[in-house]
């Protein structure tokens, strides 16, 4: 099972800043192991962030993104106590969803 994300979301003057740290190998599929075999590609393909139930960001990820990716973004709206939900899906069909309350 995929490891949890660390999400921070803070609202100030009507703008919410969200910072997400994901635990993922983000294997490109281009690398070889010590035995010379290709390490299969394994990377996040999609990320969705919801404020309460409304999508505020959807992003396509790919193999060029680093291991353990970090993403920060801001959106208009959001208030203390609101729910912030982030979901990613990878090329193997694994996914992970975590949520926090906006502070």
């Amino acid at each position: 099972m995929a490891s949890p994300m660390r999400i921070r979301a803070a609202s100030k003057d009507g703008v919410t800043e969200v910072r997400v740290l994901m635990s993922h190998p983000m294997e490109t599929g281009q690398r070889k192991n010590a035995a010379g075999e290709v390490i299969p590609a394994h990377f996040i393909t999609e990320l969705t962030a919801k404020h309460n139930d409304k999508v505020v960001l959807s992003a396509e990820f790919g193999p060029s993104v680093s291991t353990n990716p970090y993403l920060a973004f801001k959106f208009n709206g959001g208030a203390k106590g609101d729910k912030m939900v982030v979901t990613w899906v990878d090329n193997k069909g694994e996914s992970r969803t975590d949520e926090v309350q906006i502070s």
Binding site: S3, R6, R19, L21, S23, T67, N68, Y70, A72
Partner: peptide, 12 residues
């Protein structure tokens, strides 16, 4: 430093 992935190990 802002998104130091060491936090993932800290959580674990």
């Amino acid at each position: 430093a802002d998104g130091n992935p060491a936090e993932l190990f800290e959580m674990e």
